[in-house]
């Protein structure tokens, strides 16, 4: 098979780029390892900061796909050969071989494995869950219950789990967890009006449009309490509740409290596909082990290999808005490259 461009990853970044490239007249092939398109966003419920349905975004992006774009679902690449004449040969695990002029990496991120932060007790105590799991519960519209089957009355959110943490070699900020915690705390207070929600943070990074407004709402309308301090440890009592120990750094005193449910705000790490492509195509890693751009300001979608481009969270943690903008910017870089091919 011959094509102009192969897009790795059928998440919102990959689809957005593929449809735009197709509209510019190029032949596009999408390779997706899962059996569905849309990636992580399909598994989410409501989005920050305006409570928009995640499904709406996915549908909007997918609706511009058409039959002329070839999509391989449940397919992974096994080998990529750089032909050194600016073309690449891609071997797939369904025994197909594709010759292409350009490659777009849109393989995104995986959520951080919270078991690596043993002191928070994920995988050890039943009532410690991740923000990802809470989002799936909200998406399926299930009741929020503790493992003992009761409605939680006190829920804690731990920020920066696996982000800004040299102990797990992730020095970067994952950018979306702060505001996700605020959003999920509000959702919990709406679903369980008699509950209390607490956020344990190092810094609150409310940088985006309407993020600060959401944060103000969470405090004024929903009474969410923010405590500055990083948990030293979480432990379980005989009833299966979680006891957290933290320094209240604004008061300068240690604080101890019992939680019914503890939610760990897990950050982003490069996905398996992203890491594999970096090695296979001999690209450079950036400081967070994502794909390194040729220049982070002016050539953000280019890599050190000619004909290999990057879009979305494969190069760094991003919000949905930033991901879509990044995809459209990658399309322009690819268009310029293929035009002078």
């Amino acid at each position: 098979m011959n094509t102009d461009i192969v897009v790795f990853g059928g998440g919102i970044a990959g689809i957005e780029a593929a449809t735009s490239l197709h509209r510019l007249g190029y032949n596009v092939i999408i390779i997706e390892k899962e059996t569905f398109l849309g990636g992580h966003v399909t598994l989410w419920n409501k989005l920050f900061p305006n409570n928009k349905d995640a499904n709406e975004i996915v549908q909007q992006v997918i609706s511009s796909l058409n039959n002329n774009i070839t999509i391989f679902l449940a397919t992974e690449s096994t080998k990529i050969i750089n032909n050194h004449n600016n073309t690449y040969t891609i071997h797939l695990n369904n025994n197909k071989i594709i010759h292409t002029k350009a490659i777009l990496i849109a393989t995104g991120y995986d959520v951080f494995n919270a078991k690596l932060k043993e002191e928070y007790g994920y995988g050890i105590y039943d009532n410690v869950i991740t923000s990802d799991e809470l989002e799936h519960i909200l998406k399926q519209n299930k009741r929020i219950l503790t493992k003992q089957g009761k409605e939680p009355t006190r829920i804690g959110f731990v920020h920066c789990v696996g982000s800004r943490d040299r102990k797990v070699n992730n020095i970067y900020c994952s950018k979306v967890c702060c505001v996700t915690a605020v959003k999920q705390a509000i959702e919990i207070r709406q679903k369980l009006p008699f509950s209390e929600a607490y956020c344990f943070y190092m810094d609150l990074r409310m940088y985006g449009l309407n993020f600060e407004e959401l944060y103000n709402d969470s405090q004024e309308k929903y009474g969410v309490t923010f405590i500055r301090g990083r948990l030293s440890e979480a432990s379980e009592n005989i009833e299966g509740k979680i006891i957290v120990k933290v320094e209240d750094t604004l008061l300068g005193r240690p604080l101890k409290m019992t939680m019914d449910l503890l939610v760990l705000m897990v950050g982003m790490v490069p996905s398996k596909g992203t890491s594999w492509l970096i090695k296979e195509l001999e690209l450079n890693f950036n400081s967070g082990n994502f794909v390194s751009s040729l220049d982070e300001h002016t050539k953000s979608n280019l890599t050190n290999k000619k004909g290999v481009f990057v879009a979305g969270t494969a190069s760094s943690p991003k919000t949905i808005d930033d991901t879509l903008a990044d995809s459209r910017s990658a399309v322009l870089f690819i268009h310029e490259y293929l035009k002078s091919f």
Binding site: G223, D248, L251, R253, P254, L255, K256, M257, T258
Partner: peptide
């Protein structure tokens, strides 16, 4: 003990002010 024992403290004032 310098520890703030959150479970034992009475937050009626906070709820009143809210």
């Amino acid at each position: 003990d310098r520890t703030i024992d959150y479970d034992k403290n009475d937050r009626a004032l906070f709820y009143y002010l809210m």
